[in-house]
Amino acid sequence: MSSSQPSFDAFVAARGSALLRHAYVLTGDRHLAEDLVQEVLAHLYRRWDKVAASTSPEAYVKTSVTRQFLSWRRRRSSAERPTDAVPEPRAAHGDLSDTFAGDDAVWRQLATLPRRQRAILALRFYDDQSDAQIAEILGISASAVRAHASRGITTLREQLAGTDVSGAMS
């Protein structure tokens, strides 16, 4: 590893919280987010030299987190059950989620979307990725990205009909 490349520990120390935020907007669950990031980092730990030598280690890890989220079938199948009632985001440390998520209809409805649609909306609106960049991350075409995003937004619009979303922007 060259001196210009971040060590694993340094990278995690510097970018760990960003990775966790990325995982949290994907999963909508603090514990799943921690688990997801930890699992991806554990897989990359032994070959960190190659990751560090990539053009953007953070982009590499975020892509891995996103893909792992989309393929996280086994964990979901054993730990989650479908429900019509979407739980409120978990509060922690008397944290900000109490303040924000409790009355955030958009956040609650995002949690009901299929994972791919949610991931695409998160990449588009949280990470400000272009459709072409999202397509590269997910390994699908840009037109497929647009289709998934459109379906997700249409669903949200239907679910939020009659709801004042302006509060979500405050």
Binding site: V12, G16, S17, L19, L20, R21, A23, Y24, V25, R30, A33, E34, V37, Q38, L41, P89, A92, D95, L96, S97, F100, A101, D104, V106, W107, L110, L121, A122, F125, Y126, I153, L156, V165, S166, A168, M169, S170
Partner: peptide
């Protein structure tokens, strides 16, 4: 609204790996 919701709620994410 989606953008604002994601960014605001992201602040509730865990902070330490």
């Amino acid at each position: 609204a989606i953008r604002a919701s994601l960014r605001r709620n992201a602040e509730a994410a865990p902070t330490t790996v």
